[in-house]
Amino acid sequence: MSERVITFVEALNEALSLEMERDPNVIVMGEDVGVYGGIFGVSKGLLERFGSDRVIDTPISEGGFIGAAIGASAVGLRPVVELMFVDFFGVTMDQIYNQAAKMRYMFGGKIKVCVTIRTTIGGGLSAAAQHSQVLYSIFAHVPGLKAIIPSTPYDAKGLLISAIRDDNPKVFFEHKLLYGVKGPVPKESYTIPFGVADVKREGSDVTVIALAYMVHEALKAAEELAKEGVSVEVIDPRTIVPFDKETVLKSVKKTGRVVIVDEDYDRCGFASWVAAIIADEAFEYLDAPVKRITTPNVPIPFSPTLEREILPNAQKIVKAVRQVVRKI
C-alpha cells in the first residue's frame, strides 16, 4: 500500500476530481466552489479542470441552489452540492428533509435522488453559535437521508467516492478541525461501504464510540488511559445512517463498558440513540451505566474559555472512562 500522506482537504479534493473524471454526470455546485475553490479549499482546481458547466458558483441562495441540485439529481445528474456551514441548513431544510429525503418513498420507489450534500461541522474555532454546530442528529432523525461523518483523510476519500456513487440522498459532514489533518491515502480510487464501523484502536476494558474530530480526542484519551493500564477500544461508526450496530454491540459485549462521545447537543441526539440501542440489546452485558460525553444544551459560545468549557475533549473522555471502569 502506498504510504503517501495527504491532508483531509486534499483527500476530499481528490475524491471529487476522480469521480468527475469517471462520470460526466457528476457536477459540483455551491457558494464559492469555483473561482475560490471552496471556502476551505475542497474544490480547488476543479473549475480549471472541468469547466463552468460542471463546477457551478451559486448565489447565496441555499434554498434555490440546493433545491436545484436535488431536482437535477432526481432526473439523473449526480450533483455534489456544498452547504458551506451546516448551521445554514435552516434556510434550505425544506428542500432537504421534505423533498430530497421523501421523494423516492412518496413516489412509490420509482425514482432515485442521488444528491450528495457536503457540509462543514464542528466547534473549536471560536466561530460562535451560528458557525460551530454539528447537527448531524437532525439530519439522521429524518428518514430518507444517509449521514456520513468521516474522521480521517483515508475515510474521507473512500466515503466521498461511495457517496457520489450511491443512489440516495445523503449529507456528508466534514469537521472543520479535520481539514488540516494528515494521513496515508492511496492515490487510486477506492470506496468504503456505508454502515461499516471502523475500530480505530482495539482494547478490552471500555468501548468508546466517537465520530469525526472526536475520534482523535478519543484516541488521545485512549493513549493517556493506557498509561494507567486501562485498555480502550475506539470505534468510529463513520456513517450514522446506516449505522453499524453489530460492531458496536460486539465490542460492548466484550468490554461491558461504554462511553459515547458526541459533539452534537446532548438532548435527543446521536449519543442518546446509541445508548438506547445498547440498553435494549446488550443490557445484560453491561458492567456500568452507559456514559455520554456530549455538548450541553446551550448555543456554542464565542470566547475560547467558554467554548472549551462545553465541547467534549480528551480530558472529559479520560474522566468518563475512569468513572465507568471504577463501577463494577
Partner: peptide
C-alpha cells in the same frame, strides 16, 4: 427549485 434543477440538467445534457 426542483424544476430549476431539472432545467439545469436539461441544459447540460
Amino acid at each position: 427549485p426542483l424544476a430549476v434543477g431539472a432545467a439545469l440538467a436539461l441544459k447540460y445534457r
